[in-house]
Design a protein around this nucleic acid. Structure first.
Lengths: 198, 198
DNA sequence: ATTCACTTGTGACATTTGTCACTGTATACC
DNA sequence: GGTATACAGTGACAAATGTCACAAGTGAAT
């Protein structure tokens, strides 16, 4: 594992990129495999026709972008979009070196498998909720996940932003949030949502 | 690649299992990695509370079950259910040998990565349709995928079966199918749906 | 204190989906 | 032919969601 770290340090570059930057566009080819060391990345699926999008999952520090890995191997265009949610630092592994790494270090494959499994499970959860639940369940699950990720009870988000993440409309989100507030699960403020843990 | 095949032949057993058998249950631990040589396997996600389920994707001949691979590596319970849609033959790779294989044959990892990428994309498609489209789009996409998979224009399915696969109800599916028939996209018969390709 | 931009609330309405309670129709088997 | 049995159609209704058109609130800057 130490050897792997040294090898990566040798062939990779480290960059810091600012919040809001799109580091991977849908339809683009992958040139590097990013390994996040600090910050947070959101991964979206864009609707093929309109410009709408849904949040799929986050990439946290210590994780990489599994989609980069596969699109690299299969030489195909990316089917997702990745945007920095916070200023982030990442190690960039050049595409051509990544395959060698995988061959030389079995640990690397285990790492990737682990990630795949994690993200696969997150997609499964989304599909389950989308299929069997109403939007307020989806919304609540989004809020709690968001809160645990940022490690806070207070989310600084507008209803519109949430609507984008969930592929819904602002009015619907507003109404549902209001309901959740009435149920006592959250407290609403301007551009701010507080989870009331009970 | 030849060496890999020989190695697999040495350590694995081949079995033929009949249609309808559940080869992997949700919550169960994985003991073998199946490699399908003939037949067809459906993979479902079950709702955690009720018994409802959604079809996620199929495993075709030449493919393996990616969920088996990761749940094996991570030693976790399966989050999906796999049922034989047709009588199927498969090579069973013992769990303890699978890791050795992965280390010895880089090709094996590539194979798994490819599969992962494929199935990941299918999940993304489902999420996209669930988020941005109505059920009739989802239904149509289901029917065409089903038809291309079985390589026929005639599907032998009842409305109830389709409802189960999509996690919906029979009445809804019936109504939507009727609409699709009026639009001229399909022709309905008892337990039978014919796609009219134009 | 006023203004302005951003954010949120709201009522009305159309669609979509799910559910219930039936009715009608094929098909196979006797 | 008659009759089960599985399969499909239907009407009525409620709930969920999306959309439109505004109204109202909030907070920062001047």
């Amino acid at each position: 594992m130490q050897a792997l770290r040294e090898e990566l340090a040798k062939i990779s570059s480290i960059v810091t990129i600012e919040k809001g930057t799109t580091i991977l566009r849908q339809g683009e080819y992958v040139k590097v495999i990013p390994l996040l060391t600090s910050g947070l990345v959101k991964v979206f699926k864009e609707e093929s026709v309109n410009g709408n999008e849904v949040l799929l999952y986050y990439i946290k520090p210590g994780e990489s972008c599994v989609m980069s890995v596969t699109t690299l191997i299969k030489q195909q265009k990316s089917h997702v979009k990745a945007v920095l949610e916070q200023d982030s630092t990442m190690v960039l592994i050049p595409a051509n070196k990544a395959l060698e790494i995988a061959k030389k270090f079995p640990k690397w494959n285990e790492f990737i498998y682990d990630l795949f499994s994690l993200k696969f499970d997150e997609l499964l959860d989304i599909i389950e909720v989308l299929t069997f639940s109403t939007k307020n369940v989806r919304l609540l699950s989004y809020l709690t996940k968001e809160a645990s990720l940022k490690n806070t009870k207070v989310l600084h988000k507008t209803h519109q932003q949430i609507a984008y993440d969930l592929g819904s409309s602002r009015e619907v989100i507003s109404r549902l949030l209001k309901k959740l507030e009435i149920e006592g699960l959250i407290k609403l403020g301007q551009g701010k949502i507080t989870l009331t843990s009970e």
